[in-house]
Simulated scan of single mutants.
Amino acid sequence: MIDKVVTSGTFSLDGGTWEVDNNVWIVGSADEVVVIDAAHDAAAIAERVGDREVRAIVCTHAHNDHIDAAADLATRVGAPILLHPADQVLWEMVYADLPYTPLKDGQVISAGGVDLTVLHTPGHAPGAVCLYGAEIGALFSGDTLFRGGPGATGRSFSSFDTIIESIKGKLLTLPPETAVYTGHGDSTSIGEEAGHLEEWLARGH
């Protein structure tokens, strides 16, 4: 079961602020789920979860638009917040003292019979991760991979070369039919995006 809530708010970094719509993914079964990226509106996310148990709130990275509802949602549903510790500096821009459970590459997070493997994919942010569900043929890519290209790398703590390396080494090796559920905008597939790698490299930043 893959469910989605689209929430709206702002993303702020390096002195700028932008209006954004975020995809919040809810993955699992009719009994228990994982929430991926608690963005902007904890009440709307909790309403969509309903009476299902939330096993974890997983942050694909710590840009404020992906974590700004995490603390509120964690309180509402009684679930731990999971984040890769390489994003500590970004986390502290939003939550100075709030603890989280560290994620690591290769870790498996399970809910409702769905196993999601953590893939550390730095580049958009140092601690960026994707979650791969092999049995459901799905990748939850956060802001690492979108329809039409890699995530943005023009701001602090990001690197174009690093994100390309992450995508080539960790994502484009997945089966081409794998559905890619992104942090913003429309979904895509590994096969659809794999054919554009040279184009991205030529385009650069």
Rank of each mutant, 00 (worst) to 15 (best):
P175F: 07
A138R: 12
L83R: 03
S158G: 14
I36Q: 03
A86S: 07
D68T: 07
F146D: 02
D51R: 15
M93K: 12
T144I: 11
D51S: 15
H84A: 08
F146K: 03
N64I: 06
P150G: 12
V34A: 01
A152E: 08
S156C: 07
V27H: 07
S110I: 05
A202I: 13
I36T: 04
A56E: 04
G106P: 14
G50S: 15
E53S: 13
D72T: 11
E192V: 15
T7E: 13
S159K: 12
H196L: 09
L171W: 14
R48V: 13
R52T: 04
L116R: 06
L116E: 06
T178Q: 06
L139N: 10
S166D: 14
C59G: 02
M93R: 11
T178F: 05
A202G: 12
A43Q: 10
V34I: 15
K104G: 10
A194C: 00
M1S: 13
S141L: 02
H61V: 00
D21W: 07
E135N: 11
H40A: 00
A194Q: 00
G169A: 07
A38D: 05
A43R: 13
L119P: 04
E53M: 10
D105G: 03
G15Y: 13
E192T: 09
N64K: 13
D97W: 00
A69L: 00
R52S: 05
C59A: 14
L172E: 11
A111S: 04
E193S: 09
R52Y: 12
P122Y: 07
L197A: 12
T153M: 04
Q107D: 00
A39D: 07
A42S: 15
T117R: 15
K168F: 04
S189Q: 10
L174E: 12
D65P: 04
L73W: 13
D161V: 13
T17W: 09
D31Q: 05
D105M: 03
Q107Y: 01
Y132V: 14
A39Q: 09
G191T: 01
T60S: 14
T144H: 07
V114I: 15
A86N: 09
E198M: 14
T153A: 09
G113P: 02
A56V: 02
V118P: 03
D3K: 11
D143A: 09
G113N: 03
T117L: 04
K168V: 08
D143R: 07
E47W: 11
T17K: 14
A96S: 11
G191C: 01
T75W: 05
Q107F: 00
S156H: 03
A69D: 03
A111E: 04
E92W: 01
A44R: 01
H40M: 11
A42H: 05
H61I: 00
A96R: 14
L139E: 08
T182Q: 05
H205K: 04
W91A: 00
G183N: 06
V118G: 00
A125D: 06
T17A: 06
T101F: 01
F160M: 11
H196A: 10
G151C: 05
G204L: 13
G133L: 04
D14V: 09
G137P: 14
G183W: 00
T173K: 04
T7D: 15
I57N: 03
W200T: 06
H184W: 00
D87S: 07
D105N: 11
D97P: 01
A179G: 09
D14T: 08
F157Q: 08
T75R: 11
E193Q: 14
L171Y: 12
